[in-house]
Design a protein around this nucleic acid. Structure first.
Lengths: 330, 330
DNA sequence: ATGAAAGCGCTAACAG
DNA sequence: CTGTTAGCGCTTTCAT
């Protein structure tokens, strides 16, 4: 069932049908009413593809993702896709993996003529690749920055968070603190790590260990914690994210370490698991709502459009104090 | 840059350009070579939207999801979207929520003319709604059946799994067992629950409690476990999925219950968390690889096309025995 | 093997 | 406000 057929059946022009389904089009309310009603009966739906072609607007945004293991990302993606749906945009998933052919993946991204691209992949994609993939269309990086590109980003204030953790460790009387990186070269990690180390020094605390987990995973957290334990002399550990921290916490407890009495533990993100009584993990909350809001707003007001200068929006988070740092020393 | 422009620059017809980018089209290898090479220089990419319109084929499949909280789903979605990408299909996400207007959501699903729809949403959508939403296009339900529809499904053999758990409980000498439902009305739950209860009876074991958690969540698992504990008289609990089981396990241990000595615990799914040393959870693994393979194959061979009779593919899983049922009684 | 031409179903000027 | 008329960029007969 096409608009033309419908029009013929109703004895109106095909444009009238188009207008009936275009909010704000100049058409008499009665005509629109009549057309819409009739369309419902004969089960006519405007063909979005044809509309895309003539408007050269798809109402689709490409979402580039690469890691669904860390629960933070599913949560973010879910919220984001809902927010987009609310303003009439659908999300086309582009799942990039180290294994698959990146060029191939991203060329699909271009062929599909998506209106915008949102990249939630902290790793894998280099600046130039990003630039190429998003060339000529609106693009937003979430949760990472790309210094060497013209891309806009929405990113949690990692340094603020890392400092808050350092301050908190200091406030509860810890003096020999360790840092566990996820992927050390990612921008998120670098920001958290640098800010933490700097603040630790400012407080006159000792950085008793600095470990690169090589991935943001539960198991990496475990082995990092055990390493730190083996060296001794640490009374607080800041893990680069909550999944690492969860692994670390479990490993410590299994080794007979009391958390927080012997070693305090903090993470980053505030994934739902962090609030579980078993973990009860102090962490720095990334406000997903706000991140999503800001990104969607940038999309709506066109501030991330191809010509525009890149904007970097730093989103403030919040320190969530829980039991894993619940005890003050001295 | 359009095919027509490219053609003019090269002094060939626009059809030639189209053919150059159509695998298997009848075009001289040299001409194709020449066109493709030139296209690369001038950065020409075929416009997928235009192609969709003329072929009336989008190479897009709609993925309907509703729950990213249970880690099983992100894992499934990730695998699925990758498998689809490998055969040249992209995934358009449709995030349905109880809150949002379902009709609205699903009408988008129809307008976009997706080639197929894959529904991973265990809950929310009723049979008739599903039927309407997928009307006239290939559709597959994953992880649920819809008895009252003509839709094909790929679903784990829940009964097999539930029986395996019951058998295992029996084998390790447990005799007073409880079942904790997620959403009791979902097909997955009904299948697991019924099979479990039946097998428990067959073994002459006692069903000491039957609790409906009202949601598949960690916290629901916790309170169900505490309920069961309060009643006493239970030596093994089968939770309808791993997230419930994780909550239950934590709650039991916090209450001083020894798992598995006092109460054995089992879940369902085998999410990655189940293997964590802290949980070490016996569970029935849903083989995501196989589920995805089967679904993608159905898509490829057209056995789920609109006209076809619905097929229901039951996928066998595997009992994964871990520490949470590690001790045999008597 | 190649080119010409007629659509795919809709939007967007342009008249009236 | 409504109808007419060109396209949007590609695929696909149909000739040659």
């Amino acid at each position: 069932m096409t608009a033309r057929e419908l029009a013929r059946m109703l004895g109106v022009s095909q444009s009238a049908v188009s207008r009936a389904f275009t909010p704000g089009a100049s058409i008499a309310p009665e005509l629109r009413e009549k057309i819409v009603r009739f369309a419902e009966n004969v089960d006519y739906h405007p063909n979005a593809i044809a509309s895309m072609l003539s408007k050269s607007r798809t109402n689709i945004v490409g979402i580039v993702i690469s890691d669904m293991q860390n629960p933070f990302y599913p949560a973010l993606i879910e919220q984001l896709s809902r927010a987009l749906q609310r303003i009439g945009l659908q999300s086309l998933m582009f799942n990039v993996t180290r294994g698959t052919d990146l060029e191939e993946q991203l060329s699909a991204l271009r062929r599909y003529n998506v209106d915008a691209v949102i990249i939630i992949s902290a790793t894998i994609l280099s600046g130039p690749t990003l630039q190429w993939a998003t060339d000529g269309r609106a693009a937003i990086l979430i949760n990472r920055v790309a210094e060497d590109t013209e891309l806009s980003c929405v990113i949690c204030n990692n340094a603020e968070g890392a400092r808050a953790i350092a301050d908190h460790f200091h406030a509860i009387g810890r003096r020999r603190v360790a840092y566990v990186a996820g992927l050390s070269h990612t921008t998120t990690n670098r920001e958290r790590q640098n800010a933490f180390i700097t603040r630790v020094a400012e407080h006159g605390m000792t950085l008793s260990a600095l470990i690169d987990g090589n991935e943001y995973s539960y198991y990496a957290g475990r082995s990092a914690a055990l390493d730190i334990l083996a060296r001794g002399e640490t009374d607080a550990i800041f893990f680069a994210n909550d999944i690492l921290a969860a692994g670390g916490l479990d490993a410590l407890r299994e080794s007979g370490v009391r958390v927080p009495e012997d070693i305090a533990v903090a993470g980053f993100d505030d994934i739902s698991m962090a609030a579980w009584p078993h973990y009860d993990l102090t962490t720095f909350r990334q406000p997903i709502d706000t991140i999503v809001d800001v990104a969607v707003t940038m999309l709506e007001n066109g501030s991330c459009a191809p010509g525009q200068p890149p904007v970097i929006r730093r989103i403030s988070g919040e320190l969530i104090k829980r039991g894993s740092t619940g005890i003050t020393r001295e």
